[in-house]
Design a protein around this nucleic acid. Structure first.
Lengths: 332, 332
DNA sequence: CTGTTAGCGCGTTCAT
DNA sequence: ATGAACGCGCTAACAG
């Protein structure tokens, strides 16, 4: 079949042990034989078999990444960071598109185990207790990205969602907004749903404002949901001057609904997004948003997985573009 | 370390050969021993070592995917299709972000070879002759997606770009447009640049129109380029009623420039995109575009790679949304 | 129906 | 400085 270490040993007249030493640049050979071997390797086009190596050495230099939706901008950025860090360390990453509800997760975990990956990065929505146990059960190191486990056993890399949402909401308030609608993930979602809502609520409270139930909407984080919830908001009786949508896609959906409803952004309504994916940049008008540094979070997650395996909370910030404007304070 | 076939053999009192047969559901064992073994496997949590399997069987059930930019919507959709088809066949896919100029391609190829992947999908911009030779040299099957090789040795999966651009342009003409600007990839790009321009030119010719050099702009396929080229177009003296941008990102860039320049879409100007990624859906107004069925192209590419390895040209179509409108024929 | 054995390609003692 | 030999976990003959 393919050419093996034996071939280069034979060709150079040394033993496979020596070739092995040279390939893995250890010590124990003369410069002369080294040269001979290196040349033979080049001539033969020898490439060490990673399977055999892995079989003996227990190091596959491969990790798995579990994502609910690879084709999203969100996943793309994360993946870019992960992949970049991995490549630099000589690791390969196999992508696993688990489905929006994570329905294929178990299947993937099974093959990842068979392939003896050195760990998995979990960026697949909610990280349940069962997941943690399952992972522990099959003995694979894991770290979650943009998600948090209830178990303290699994390190995470994420922004502080509550604080980020608090800051985003405060920003809106500082711009003079008092009636701020909220479109977010379901409150049953303990990682991206509830905390962001809490941040929103706490920011209002901190400024002496109260939350108006008529101004609250929930859905998944997709474009369609944002659009629908915004439509619903527009149909309600209650007036508002700003919306905080906790994903850029949702915010863009809101932009669409607003336009269809004849409300101008930002003249009639300010809109704040979350994530700062390309969607925010490409939105018309360009979207002001709370940034999660997805790319560097991906890098950090890889580093954590293959390194000390500890949690890191990434810094968020507000990226100002054109959808949020200052309004008169006394509109009330 | 991990639990092996020996452990389950020992536990059940049969030989490893029998266990192997059962695991790979071959024939040659009684139902009774099967049950015993299956149970032991479950109890022990045995998971076959794919490395060992691959070492003997020469089947790693893994492919590599080379992409210039994983985080783009374009790559995301492609990857989704590839991944989906792969998963269904029990294959894993390792992603390789080669960089916009494919600068990391060689490095990736080297590790993919070591890992003995069964083939690579190349969706990484231009597929040069050197690439083809390199791949052939290391003996890895490949198929290109949304790209075409000059060599006939490598199968491809793509739409007919010339015809797709022809159809897109014709669509604009049928809508009454006579002055149609073009924003595309560099003509030196033999796969997505030149052919699309040719389609544009031929469509004009077929309708008795001639191409106006003042209305032609080129760049990479990114958002920024589209914006810049559109700005440049707006500054020129020549009037036009429509723009055909050969990527959705570019088209959205054009939308931005138009808005900044005070020209309304579609009232003052029609805009046609290319790809039909999420960017088209999320654009404001929603973008009419020439669709490439990226997801199914990804699936087809995987099928081709692991199957008969033959080329397929995917069907394109025009997805009508809101950026192209009929205008009076006699505007001229 | 079931067990033994020989590799797959490599890293690693242990000798020399 | 170098080589022989074992074993990683498994599949595939080959024997019974």
């Amino acid at each position: 079949m393919s050419i093996t270490i034996k071939d280069v040993a034979k060709k150079t007249g040394v033993s496979i042990a020596t070739v092995s030493r040279i390939v893995n640049n250890q010590s124990g050979y003369s410069e002369k034989t080294r040269k001979k071997v290196v040349q033979a390797i080049a001539e033969l086009g020898y490439s060490p078999n990673a399977l055999a190596r892995g079989l003996v050495g227990q190091a596959t230099r491969t990790i798995g990444v579990l994502l609910p939706n690879v084709s999203s901008l969100f996943a793309g950025k994360l993946l870019e960071g992960i992949e970049s860090a991995a490549q630099q360390q000589g690791y390969s990453v196999v992508v696993c598109n688990t489905g929006s509800e994570g329905e294929r997760t178990d299947d993937y975990l099974a093959v990842l185990k068979q392939k003896r990956v050195e760990g998995v990065l979990y960026a697949s929505g909610v990280f349940s207790k069962e997941m943690a146990e399952k992972l522990a059960g099959i003995g694979m190191p894991a770290v979650t990205v943009a998600t948090k486990s209830h178990e303290e056993t699994v390190p995470f890399v994420k922004v502080d969602d509550r604080t980020a949402a608090f800051d985003g909401t405060s920003y809106l308030i500082e711009k003079g907004h008092r009636k701020i609608a909220f479109i977010g993930g379901e409150l049953s979602d303990p990682v991206a749903g509830l905390p962001r809502f809490e941040g929103y609520r706490e920011a209002l409270a901190a400024h002496g404002l109260k939350v108006d139930d008529h101004l609250l909407r929930f859905g998944d984080f997709r474009f369609e949901a944002g659009k629908e919830q915004m439509q619903s908001l527009l149909e309600s009786e209650t007036a508002f001057t700003a919306v905080f949508a906790t994903s850029d896609e949702m915010a863009v959906g809101a932009l669409h609904a607003a336009r269809e409803g004849g409300v101008r952004v930002p003249e009639d309504l300010s809109v704040l997004g979350y994530d700062n994916t390309l969607a925010a940049e490409m939105a018309l008008p360009p979207l002001t948003t709370v940034e999660q540094p997805l790319r560097s979070m991906g890098e950090a997650a890889f580093a954590s997985l293959t390194g000390e395996r500890k949690s890191v909370t990434a810094g968020h910030k507000i990226v100002e573009r054109q959808t949020v404007v200052q309004i008169e304070e006394d509109i009330k």
